[in-house]
Write a protein that binds this DNA or RNA. Structure first.
Lengths: 196, 196
DNA sequence: TCTTTTTCCTACTATTCAGATAGGGTTTAG
DNA sequence: CTAAACCCTATCTGAATAGTAGGAAAAAGA
């Protein structure tokens, strides 16, 4: 039931790009992402290529280039990323909705294991398909602010004479709070503290 | 997020042993399990060895030998089996309660991905640690009876002159129904039909 | 134009693991 | 004594995981 390192790195990078966006930074380089997250740079580079090919990010080549999210963070679900990098979320092929595969058991309809694993699948997708990058970004920023820690990717490389586009630094995030209703545990484990 | 074949086979075999017990059959041979579930016999043999070493089953050697559950089915949770065969249930080491492992990220306390994966872990363990072999056996037998299908492992090899110990064939199963409350989906997806 | 910094692209590698298969040895019932 | 079971160890193949390496192409700025 593991998430691969590749999947983990991809998500961390995408979350970082979401944070960068929220903090007014348009582009982030692979090396900076790798530095911050302690990921092997060349490995992350490959991953970013794949994320680009899949349409999750857009690259800007050349000096002062980098990556940014291809869509609003609220439109990229965690589930979509994990499925792309690591394949189906279902623990067993015969309960996957997106990539069904017949299993070897003689009678799927009366297979107790299948029934159980279907619920595991639903539990997993219920979380990963419900939450998106914006949700994770929002909660991360809240925690950082609560503890008065410096936000990452703060106003980098302000070229002399060029005014940094200040995008929505203090806006209340892009994700609607309906999604963050107390579903037990989840990110909303943290939300009660702020839910006034 | 996959369950390995080995894990799948182990669970199927254990569930079968639970069914056999419930139907009055004390011992089941590897070949019979493998036949029924379409599992390579030699591979399953290995797995049964490991399950024996782990204390899930007891073997009887020699002619007319076989395997049986070492404990009541209600005392063997699915989670325990999966953990034994496939390792921790958590999708990422830093959210595992039973096998915590520090991850590479610089600040676990403010890692949004970690918060999310913690909820995934809880969702998975919430199912796999809540339900046990008896629950799965119960539901499987119900489905088979509902559809008037023959129960597997029915009264095998009645040695002449020896009366088969008829253990609890029609008893209401060993698991208490408190556990099977409608948790949304799960095995209890099927229960409403019977929950009068 | 030249240099620097970035992404882009391809190939390679090392190790582990999944999923078995093979071939006997040992025990027990009859 | 034999058949039918478990017991034990070794081996194998292919794929996946988790990277490394090295340079080509592009863009910005001097």
């Amino acid at each position: 039931m593991k998430l691969s390192k590749k999947g983990e790195y991809a998500l961390r990078a995408l979350i970082d790009l979401g944070i960068a966006r929220e903090v007014g930074r348009e582009l982030v380089q692979v090396t900076e992402l790798a530095d911050k997250e302690l990921i092997p740079a060349k490995f992350l580079e490959q991953i970013m290529q794949e994320l680009k090919a899949a349409g999750f990010v857009i690259a800007q080549r050349g000096k002062f280039g980098g990556y940014r999210l291809a869509r609003p963070a609220a439109e990229i679900t965690i589930g979509a990323v994990v499925r792309f990098v690591d394949g189906p979320l279902a623990p067993i092929g015969c309960v996957s909705h997106t990539a069904y595969e017949k299993c070897s058991c003689p009678d799927e309809e009366h297979c107790g294991l299948r029934m159980l694993m279907l619920d595991v699948r639903n539990a997993i997708t219920g979380i990963l398909d419900r939450y998106n990058l914006a949700d994770v970004v929002e909660v991360t920023l809240r925690k950082l602010r609560r503890d008065s820690l410096p936000l990452p990717f703060a106003a980098a490389r302000p070229k002399p004479g060029v005014r940094v586009k200040r995008v929505a630094v203090s806006r209340r995030s892009t994700s609607n709070s309906r999604r963050l209703a107390p579903v037990e545990g989840l990110i909303s484990e943290l939300l009660p503290e702020y839910a006034i």
